[in-house]
Nucleic acid binder design. Structure first.
Length: 277
DNA sequence: CACGACTCCTGCTGGC
DNA sequence: TGCCAGCAGGAGTCGT
């Protein structure tokens, strides 16, 4: 599921249920995701109050506190991860790897492909950003500092194609394979064009296109935020009709041209040969 | 530094 | 119907 919008929708679903809650217990079933889930969480977390649910890129950050001791639970959903609130008596399924036991329910993390991450960073909330996985994260595309000017300058020495460049989380966070294609479609820019050969004027179009693509997706998920976290995640995420993604050989909804599928950096890319140059 | 290839893992789909 | 190759919304590491 998770690109930035899905993670943000997930965060918004978690926040009202989690903030203020005291963690009663922890269950670790799969020691090894992308990294081992720290066994120490089983003793660190019980008794902790969740004081905030934040997002950095595609990482969820649960700030925790217990009598002055602070730390942040870092969760990444990888390709196939999801978080659900479930009742105590729902037996765990095959890929349910981790859970927080709360007062009236369980927050359960499932991830079939196990590309996800559950880690712990001790210290006050601000120190979470110092974790090696987070310290190198790029700019937030929905922040006010993400401007055409910023992107144009940042990309000056990037000669690779624009689409995989936009997906580099050390440059800009949160733009995954779907929204990279969709944003470029909205902006009318070919995914094959070298990043540093996109004109300044076209970045003025691309940056708002990225912002609108992401925020439209959040808004679409937002109509069923509760459902998203409480059910199996199908509800919110796919309500946006894709312009090009997964529409190979179908007519472009804007110009009637044909949507083509190509491969870049090992990932599929979709674009309209008629209106993206 | 920047880039592409490779890697981790399971599950589903499409073609035969 | 069954089998298998290929692909799936991420991202770190390594070699060039």
């Amino acid at each position: 599921m998770p690109e930035l919008p899905e993670v943000e929708v997930c965060r918004r679903g978690l926040e009202p249920e989690l903030v203020g809650q005291v963690i009663q217990g922890v269950v670790i079933r799969a020691p090894k995701l992308r990294h081992e889930i720290p066994p120490a969480l089983a003793t660190l977390l019980p008794g902790c109050r969740v004081v905030a649910v934040r997002r950095r890129g595609k990482y969820l950050l649960l700030d925790c506190e217990r009598r002055g001791v602070q730390g942040t639970l870092i969760i990444h959903l990888g390709m196939s991860g999801n978080l659900r609130f479930v009742p105590f008596d729902l037996p765990p399924a095959k890929h349910d790897h981790f859970e927080l036991v709360l007062a009236g329910q369980i927050l359960r993390f499932a991830d079939p492909r196990r590309f996800g991450v559950v880690l712990w960073q001790p210290g006050p909330p601000a120190s979470a950003e110092c974790h090696p996985l987070l310290a190198t994260q790029g700019i937030e595309p929905l922040s006010e500092t993400f401007t055409a000017e910023w992107l144009y300058e940042a990309i000056a020495r990037r000669s690779g194609p624009i689409k995989p460049t936009l997906m580099d989380s050390h440059l800009v966070v949160g733009i995954g394979n779907i929204y990279a294609s969709e944003s470029l479609f909205r902006a009318g820019i070919s995914p094959l064009r070298a990043a540093n050969r996109v004109s300044r004027a076209r970045y003025e179009i691309l940056v708002p296109a990225i912002r609108e693509t992401l925020s439209d997706a959040i808004a679409a998920g937002g109509s069923s935020i509760r459902d998203y976290v409480h059910s199996d995640g199908g509800a919110g995420c796919f309500q946006i009709q894709a312009g090009v993604y997964d529409r190979a050989n179908q007519p472009c909804l804007r110009c009637g041209g044909v949507v083509r599928q190509i491969w870049q950096a090992g990932r599929s890319t979709y674009y309209c040969t008629g209106c993206q140059h």
